[in-house]
């Protein structure tokens, strides 16, 4: 690895570790999110030192660009007060046990990494001007792996995503118009205190929070809620 690469590795590694610690230790959720953003950006830098250019770009696009933004969205939607806890719920016992476990796991990982023979894990060095080097983790190598070698599982994954979307819509769309007509008659609307109008044994909801939408014409169907 060249001197520049080593410098990049050290800087990005330090930033990643510090930002990761800040992510879990800051009390303001918005600041945690920004620390997470710093962390994933630093990780992208680490990927660059491994010659995984495409992975670094995808890391920026997906994690920094989309995932963290989603986090921020959720935090802002919930409002600043929703997530901060004034009282510290954990006592010193659980803190000590947690720290001990963490030290144990971290020590085990460090020990295992230290025992690994470097010959088997080293990324081949990259003399200037060698073409194969840019292949590792680059667009060419990745697309060859996905679209040629593993084309069948890749297409299968696209079907998996399609099924997941349809299933999600099926659940989210909920009821047909007929079902709404049936269950949301006037009586049902007025007295809908049940989470599930079709089932008489379902637990009652808080009447203060029942639907206050406009009422429709009187239905001669007996209310399903009764």
């Amino acid at each position: 690895m060249s001197t520049g690469g080593e410098l990049l590795f050290v800087v990005c590694g330090l930033i990643a570790v510090v930002a990761a610690v800040l992510t879990v230790s800051l009390s303001n959720p918005l600041r945690s999110a920004v620390a997470l953003l710093t962390h994933v950006t630093a990780l992208a830098g680490l990927y660059l030192t491994l010659h995984a250019h495409l992975l670094a770009a995808v890391q920026l696009l997906v994690y920094a660009g989309a995932v963290v933004v989603l986090f921020v969205f959720v935090i802002m939607l919930l409002g600043p007060g929703a997530l901060d806890s004034k009282a510290e719920p954990r006592g010193w016992v659980s803190k000590t046990v947690g720290a001990g476990l963490l030290a144990l796991v971290a020590g085990a990982i460090a020990f295992a990494v230290g025992k690994v023979n470097p010959e088997t894990v080293a990324i081949p060095g990259c003399p200037d001007g060698q073409a194969e080097c840019s292949q590792f983790g680059g667009v060419n190598a990745l697309s060859a792996a996905i679209y040629r070698d593993a084309a069948i599982p890749f297409e299968l994954v696209s079907m998996l995503l399609l099924v997941a979307i349809i299933a999600a819509i099926t659940i989210a769309r909920g009821r047909t118009r007929d079902e709404k007509e049936l269950t949301d008659s006037v009586d049902a609307r007025r007295f809908a205190r049940r989470a599930f109008p079709s089932d008489a044994e379902a637990p009652l909801l808080n009447p203060a929070k029942m639907s206050t939408g406009p009422l429709r014409g009187q239905s001669d169907e007996p209310s399903a809620a009764e």
Binding site: I152, P153, L156, V157, L160, A167, R175, E179, F196, S198
Partner: peptide, 29 residues
Amino acid sequence: SDVLTLFVALETLSLGVYGLVAFRRTSPR
């Protein structure tokens, strides 16, 4: 005939069936 296709196919099957079970969403059961 590969654990990768096995897992993805199993999930394709299962995700669809989860959706089918929840099809009548208004029912608590």
